[in-house]
Computed example of a mutant assay.
Amino acid sequence: MSALRYSGAPGAQNSALVDGVAATTVALPNQGSATAWATATVPVRVPAGARLAFRLDDGYVVWIDYITPGQLRPSRS
């Protein structure tokens, strides 16, 4: 899982893209202000060396402060 710190987003719908391919959608609840920040969990795995990007699919402006990529953990046999 990754995390996205954002502001604004009156009902914004976004796609999380891994290496340019849509991996999941992320709904960002309205924060009501450009200065009210929140963090959303993004249920996507990003392999080492891959690029994570977000695309605004519907809604208004979204300000992204930072993205924290999740860590892949080896599976136990």
Rank of each mutant, 00 (worst) to 15 (best):
A34Q: 15
Q13P: 00
P29I: 04
A50C: 05
A9S: 14
D19R: 01
D57T: 05
A50K: 06
G49D: 01
A12Q: 08
V21S: 01
V62R: 11
A40R: 12
P10T: 00
L52M: 03
A36R: 12
A38K: 09
A23T: 07
V44T: 10
R73C: 10
A38E: 07
L17F: 04
Y66N: 11
T24H: 02
G8S: 06
A36D: 08
T24M: 03
T39H: 09
P47F: 07
L17W: 04
A53L: 01
V46W: 03
N30Y: 12
R73M: 14
G20S: 01
V42K: 10
L28Q: 07
S15R: 10
V21P: 01
R76K: 07
S75E: 02
G8M: 01
Q31V: 01
L72H: 05
G8N: 08
L56S: 11
Q13G: 07
F54C: 00
A34P: 11
N14E: 12
V62A: 10
N30T: 09
T68Y: 12
I64K: 13
P43N: 06
S75A: 15
D58E: 11
R51E: 10
R73N: 08
T68C: 05
A12S: 12
R55Y: 12
W37T: 04
P43A: 04
T41E: 11
M1K: 10
A3K: 14
G49H: 14
D57M: 06
S33Q: 06
A22T: 09
V42E: 05
N30M: 07
G59P: 02
D65P: 00
Y66C: 06
M1D: 13
G49V: 04
P10I: 01
V61T: 14
A27L: 14
G11S: 07
L17G: 01
S2V: 00
A22N: 03
G20E: 03
V18A: 02
P29C: 03
L28P: 01
P69C: 09
L4K: 14
P29N: 05
A3L: 14
V18T: 06
V26P: 06
T35D: 11
G70P: 12
T39K: 12
D58A: 14
A9M: 02
S7L: 01
L56A: 11
T24W: 00
G20V: 13
A12N: 13
A38R: 13
A23G: 02
P29L: 07
S2Q: 08
Q31Y: 00
I64F: 06
F54V: 00
P74Q: 13
A50I: 02
L52G: 10
S75T: 15
A27D: 13
T41W: 09
G32E: 00
L72K: 04
P10F: 14
A23S: 12
A34N: 15
L72M: 11
Q13C: 03
V18Y: 09
A38F: 04
R76V: 15
F54D: 04
G32M: 07
Y66M: 10
Y6S: 05
R5H: 10
N14V: 14
P74N: 05
A9C: 06
P47R: 05
P74Y: 07
A16L: 03
A27F: 13
